[in-house]
Write a protein that binds this DNA or RNA. Structure first.
Lengths: 127, 127
DNA sequence: CGCCTTCGTTACGGTTCCGTAACTTCTAGG
DNA sequence: CCTAGAAGTTACGGAACCGTAACGAAGGCG
């Protein structure tokens, strides 16, 4: 889909900048699984079910249930009963989640450009 | 340093692919902080101390101590007493850590290109 | 030598998350 | 109907991690 070419050092340094920025940020820090789930819900075509997400990420269903609970608590996703099969629960996007991910994307883009709050703010000597 | 230009969707989809791959992988799943720490040790010029890393990531020193313990348990980093100041501990790279990050870099690069094990392996319909 | 500061670790209480197993609700097939 | 199976949740015991606070070891300096 995208088609960006990077070398190893570029790739890792982008990752590092975004990762460190993420850790420092006041934003609710999501676990790797929660983040993976959130991104999947927003970037892959619906519908998204607990079962499907669990298989995709190769984790247990309860883990997905918990992640969805946490994310919906933060209002980053929404749960809705499936009318055609009421055993299923559809995990859907929210406005807040869209905003959150848009900001996260900016963070990654800034990292890819070589910017970071820390770098911008100075702090040259040891770190 | 790098200078890559991405748009939001590209950035997020790269992140998603790498994140999902990371969650599924058999690799020891590191927390965001552990990963940020590991990347910093390998990509920023030494020396690296507990204090310095804690300040950089804006977390408590014990958090760094624990992360270093966990990472050295996995042999991804190494602890060495500083001879010039024996209160300090220097966190250093290891062969295994280099290999690990090289593989991780490949994962990101593949994601940036638009590849994924899942995509390559088929699995077209719902996910 | 004493005193004070710094570095890193350990102790502690609390939070979050995990996977297995049991359970509820619903669908589908005979 | 009624039973077999599937989807999701809850219960439970255990593991990992956090930050504050207390602590031991080491350096700096009068």
């Amino acid at each position: 889909m995208s088609g960006i070419e990077l070398n190893e050092l570029e790739a890792l340094d982008i990752w590092r900048r975004a990762m460190v920025a993420g850790v420092r940020a006041d934003a609710p820090d999501l676990s790797a699984r929660q983040m993976a789930l959130l991104l999947t819900v927003y970037l892959r075509p619906p519908p998204h079910t607990v079962r499907g997400l669990a298989e995709l990420m190769k984790v247990s269903k309860p883990a997905v249930t918990r992640a969805v609970y946490r994310l919906s608590e933060l209002q980053l996703v929404r749960r809705k009963a499936d009318d055609s099969d009421r055993r299923s629960v559809l995990i859907q996007r929210t406005v807040r989640g869209s905003v959150f991910l848009r900001e996260y994307a900016e963070l990654i883009i800034a990292a890819a450009r070589g910017e970071t709050e820390a770098d911008a703010g100075g702090l040259p000597p040891r770190y």
